[in-house]
């Protein structure tokens, strides 16, 4: 019953569903592993900055596709063997609104 309530709250809030544990994993993955090219603070490195300002004009669905399928001709790899579409949507939403800190 609780989980149904949580689920509907999450959906009502417009959030893409991800469990607390998975969210923590994704935050760590983005900060640490995406961070190896984009920087731990996501301010960019060999890869583009992933701050809300840097991504402002990019449609969310394009960003989700970039995460899952990579960008041929660049160093951005496809993450579809690691991330589900739902994971990618959650990551993109959080990137656009300001990505959470680890343990925060």
């Amino acid at each position: 019953m609780k989980s149904v309530l949580f689920l509907s709250l999450a959906l009502a809030a417009g959030g893409v569903l991800a469990s607390g544990d998975r969210e923590r994993e994704l935050v760590r993955l983005v900060r640490q592993d995406c961070g190896s090219c984009h920087g731990m603070l996501l301010t960019g490195g060999l890869g583009q900055p992933l701050t809300p300002e840097a991504l402002r004009d990019k449609p969310a669905e394009n960003l989700v596709a970039t995460v899952l399928y990579g960008r041929p001709g660049t160093a951005m790899p496809p993450w579809k063997s690691i991330l589900t579409e739902r994971d990618a949507q959650w990551i993109v939403e959080r990137l656009l609104s300001g990505f959470p800190k680890e343990g925060g």
Binding site: D33, P77, I82
Partner: peptide, 13 residues
């Protein structure tokens, strides 16, 4: 060195 083979994704340089 890898001619004709598909590259695997490189998740870190």
């Amino acid at each position: 060195y890898g001619r004709g083979q598909e590259k695997l994704p490189v998740f870190k340089m």
